[in-house]
Simulated assay, not measured.
Amino acid sequence: MISIYELKPKFQQLLMPIVNFLHNKKVTPNQVTISACLLSILTGVLFYFNTESAWIYAVIPVFMFIRMAMNAIDGVLAKKFNLQSRLGKFLNELTDVISDTVLFIPFILLVQTFPVSVVIFIALSIISEMAGVISESVSGGRRYDGPMGKSDRAFLIGVIAILLLFSIPLQPYLHFIFLAASLLICLNIYKRVINGMEVKR
């Protein structure tokens, strides 16, 4: 099944001027990673306390794109200039989970029916990333299988925010959206486990 993650190589190429600029300014991958997390927390807090304000639904999709860019930049910066570190591995995985959780929690306030669907979505998102990380220790390769991987989830949240921005009455159906997305995450967990058991040669 197609995942936005498959577009990552082309996206990284477009970001190369920014990567080179940041390297020239002595910015490290870990600084980019931490900055992305702090911005995610700030956006999540603003979202939580402004769910009834229209402007926040314009901010969210823009920030989701910026966050995806920053997530790609820190990786390219580390690999291209040999700046990988053990701390960077921890930060990369932990900050992604923290960021997702903080950005998704406010939707609990918007779901009119079965708000626990958002909790299920968040929990499965965390399990999905755990499955990807565990596969690295088992087979030597981090798994990013879709559908509904990290980039897909960011895209989904951005689309939901845009629809809400234009006053499309989505709230009565949000729980269906999160439950459907959760089923797709279950599929990606299965794929990551199965593919993660294959030893890389």
Score class of each variant (00 low, 15 high):
Leu7Gln: 13
Leu7Lys: 11
Phe11Cys: 04
Pro17Trp: 10
Val19Gly: 05
Asn20Phe: 09
Phe21Glu: 08
Thr28His: 12
Asn30Ala: 09
Gln31Lys: 03
Gln31Glu: 15
Thr33Pro: 00
Leu38Gly: 00
Leu38His: 08
Ser40Met: 09
Ile41Asp: 02
Leu42Trp: 09
Thr43Gln: 08
Thr43Ile: 15
Gly44Glu: 04
Val45Ile: 15
Phe47Pro: 05
Phe47Lys: 04
Phe49Met: 07
Glu52Tyr: 13
Ser53Arg: 14
Ser53Cys: 07
Ala54Arg: 14
Ala54Met: 13
Trp55Thr: 07
Ile60Pro: 01
Pro61Gln: 08
Val62Trp: 07
Phe63Cys: 01
Met68Arg: 00
Ala69Lys: 01
Met70Leu: 15
Asn71His: 14
Asp74Glu: 09
Leu77Ser: 12
Ala78Leu: 06
Phe81His: 12
Asn82Asp: 09
Arg86Ile: 11
Leu87Gly: 14
Leu87Ala: 03
Gly88Phe: 00
Phe90Lys: 14
Leu94Cys: 12
Asp96Arg: 03
Val97Ala: 13
Val97Cys: 04
Ser99Ala: 15
Ile105His: 11
Pro106Val: 11
Phe107Pro: 06
Phe107Asp: 02
Ile108Asp: 01
Leu110Arg: 03
Phe114Ile: 14
Phe114Met: 10
Pro115Leu: 11
Pro115His: 13
Ser117Ile: 04
Ser117Phe: 04
Val119Phe: 09
Ile120Tyr: 09
Phe121Ser: 11
Ile122Phe: 03
Ala123Phe: 15
Ala123Met: 14
Leu124Cys: 07
Ser125Pro: 05
Ile126Gly: 04
Ser128Asn: 12
Glu129Arg: 14
Val133Ala: 15
Glu136Thr: 09
Arg142His: 10
Arg142Ser: 02
Arg143Thr: 03
Asp145His: 08
Gly146Val: 11
Lys150Met: 01
Lys150Ala: 09
Ser151Lys: 07
Arg153Trp: 02
Leu156Arg: 12
Ile157Ser: 02
Gly158Ser: 08
Gly158Val: 08
Ile162Leu: 15
Ile162Lys: 04
Leu163Val: 07
Leu164Phe: 10
Leu164Val: 12
Pro169Leu: 05
Leu170Val: 08
Ile177Asp: 11
Leu179Asp: 05
Leu184Trp: 03
Asn188Glu: 10
Arg192Ala: 11
Met197Gln: 10
Glu198Tyr: 05
Lys200Gln: 14
